[in-house]
Every structure is written in structure tokens, then in C-alpha cells.
Computed example of a mutant assay.
Amino acid sequence: MAKSTGVSSNAPTLYLTELDVTRLEGIASRAATAELDEMLDALLTRAAIVPPDAIPKDVVTMNSRVVCALEGEPAPRDWTLVYPDDADLAAGRLSVLSPVGQALLGARAGQTVDYRLPDGRQQRVTVLEVAFQPEASGQFTL
């Protein structure tokens, strides 16, 4: 039986470019852990791999900057969704392989998604705004 990724079944279909898939596969092959392989498999199972110019402008993609509301928190969060090597939560750079990062990837502005924290608690986050999306800005290799 496969281990749960922490992303609920209402998770949106996500959009990935071929470059994003190549980068994520490279990360998984360097780390060579079963847990990371399972996370990547879960992401790719939900993924629609498309050319960068086919991604809707309101979708959270890699290197997008999003404004999110976490359930139960008074102030919104401003996060940029990044690859694990670039993650720095204190600086607002959220790893795509974190539970919330996996849930946000592919979400649309206005959408609420659920995910599980490592301790098993359920959490909910709403995408208030996709403030920057590389593909919408014509930055297809960011």
C-alpha cells in the first residue's frame, strides 16, 4: 500500500511544464529516497504536462508568488513556490515537496485546498491571488 502524500483527494489537477518535470525528476534521482519518489509520483499522477504557454494565468505553478489565507490565521501569507534546494520558509520560499506546497501546486486563484501536516492534522489554505506566475510573464525557463 502506498504512503499518503498528505494531499487530499480534492486536490486540483496540476500543470507542469516539461522543464519542471525534468527538474523534479533530477531532484528525486539525486536524493534517491523512497519517500521523495512517492511524493514525485503523486505529483506526476495529478499532473497535466503542457507547454508553458498553455498554462492558465490563474494557476499556481513553479516559481509562482501567491497570497494565501491559512485557515485559523488572521493575516495572509505571501509565498513563492520553489524547488526544495531553494526553500527558505522564513524568506517566504515554500518547497513544492512540502505538504502545503504539493497542495498549492496547480490550485487556482480563489480555490481552497486541503492537506495534511506531518503530524496528521488536516489544514486548509485558500489562494487569494496569484501575484506572479512565470508563464504569464513569458518567463518559461524560470
Rank of each mutant, 00 (worst) to 15 (best):
M1K: 10
K3N: 14
K3I: 15
S8V: 07
A11R: 11
P12Q: 04
Y15D: 08
T17G: 00
L19Y: 04
V21E: 07
V21W: 02
E25C: 09
E25Y: 01
G26R: 08
A28D: 00
S29I: 14
S29Q: 15
S29E: 15
S29M: 12
S29K: 14
R30A: 14
A31E: 13
A31G: 02
A32C: 03
T33P: 02
A34E: 15
E35N: 11
E38H: 00
M39S: 06
L40M: 06
A42V: 02
L43Y: 00
L43A: 02
L44K: 15
L44S: 09
L44A: 13
T45Y: 14
R46N: 10
R46H: 06
A47E: 01
I49S: 10
V50Y: 03
P51Y: 08
P51C: 04
P52F: 05
P52G: 08
D53Q: 10
A54H: 09
P56A: 02
P56Q: 03
K57P: 09
K57T: 14
D58L: 08
V59L: 09
V59D: 11
V59H: 08
V59C: 10
T61N: 09
T61I: 15
T61H: 09
N63W: 03
S64H: 05
S64A: 12
S64Y: 03
V66Y: 12
A69D: 06
L70N: 05
L70Q: 08
E71C: 00
E73T: 02
P74N: 11
A75E: 15
A75S: 13
P76Q: 08
D78W: 06
D78I: 10
D78S: 12
W79M: 09
T80S: 03
L81H: 01
L81G: 03
P84F: 03
D86V: 04
A87D: 09
D88Y: 00
D88E: 12
L89P: 06
A90I: 01
A91S: 15
A91M: 13
G92K: 08
L94A: 05
S95Q: 11
V96F: 07
L97T: 10
S98I: 07
P99I: 04
P99F: 03
P99T: 07
V100A: 15
V100K: 13
L105R: 04
G106M: 10
A107L: 07
A107D: 00
R108Q: 03
G110P: 00
V113C: 01
D114H: 12
Y115N: 06
R116T: 05
L117K: 14
L117C: 07
R121T: 12
Q122N: 11
Q122K: 15
T126V: 00
T126I: 03
L128G: 02
V130L: 12
A131V: 03
A131S: 11
A131Q: 09
F132D: 10
Q133W: 02
Q133Y: 01
Q133G: 07
E135V: 02
E135P: 01
S137V: 04
G138L: 08
Q139R: 13
F140Y: 15
F140S: 10
T141N: 12
T141K: 10
L142H: 01
